[in-house]
Amino acid sequence: MKGIEALKKMLKLYDEILSVNHRSEIARDLRDEDDLFLLLCLSETLGLPNPAFYYTLELYPYMLEKFHEWHLRMGMDKSPLTGIRCC
């Protein structure tokens, strides 16, 4: 068991060493993917047809929190969409 735990620690350390220089790039890519997902899920409110609307409907409570964070990060004090009142 000690050998497996030591191997896990070594793999974790190796992963941290590889990603230390790329943390900001990874965070930016994850944020961009999250923004794209938010756009796809909220496309109905923007007037764009969303074929997966029925499947993404249960995600709306989660997306409202993310939408609020997004429009504040974009420098908008209030929601730019009239259908979404998060502030």
Score class of each variant (00 low, 15 high):
L7G: 05
G3E: 15
I4K: 13
T45Y: 15
W70V: 02
K66H: 04
M1P: 09
D77V: 06
L81Q: 04
C41W: 00
L11S: 05
H68T: 06
K78C: 03
D34E: 14
L72H: 06
R85K: 14
A27V: 10
H68A: 13
I26N: 03
R85I: 06
P51W: 02
L72Y: 01
R31K: 15
L39K: 13
C87M: 02
N21Q: 13
R73F: 01
S19Y: 06
K66V: 06
D77K: 13
L59C: 08
L30M: 14
K78P: 00
D32S: 12
Y60M: 15
S43W: 01
L39V: 12
E5M: 15
D34V: 03
Y54E: 15
I4W: 09
C86E: 03
Y60D: 06
S79N: 06
K12L: 12
L57T: 07
L42Y: 02
P80V: 01
L46F: 07
P61D: 05
E44I: 08
Y60S: 08
K8F: 07
H71Y: 14
Y14M: 12
F67E: 00
L64T: 03
I26A: 06
G47M: 03
E25A: 08
K9R: 15
R73T: 02
I4Q: 13
D35M: 12
S79K: 02
D77P: 02
L13P: 00
M10D: 09
R31C: 09
E5H: 12
L64K: 07
G47T: 03
A6S: 11
S19G: 09
D32I: 11
G83C: 08
L59N: 07
D77E: 14
R73I: 00
C41G: 03
M76L: 14
S79R: 01
Y54R: 15
I17Q: 14
L38S: 04
S24F: 14
A27P: 02
Y62N: 11
D29T: 09
E65H: 09
L57N: 06
M1K: 11
S79Q: 02
K78W: 00
M63I: 10
L7F: 08
C87F: 01
E25K: 08
L30Q: 15
L48F: 14
T56K: 08
Y55C: 04
M1S: 14
C41Q: 06
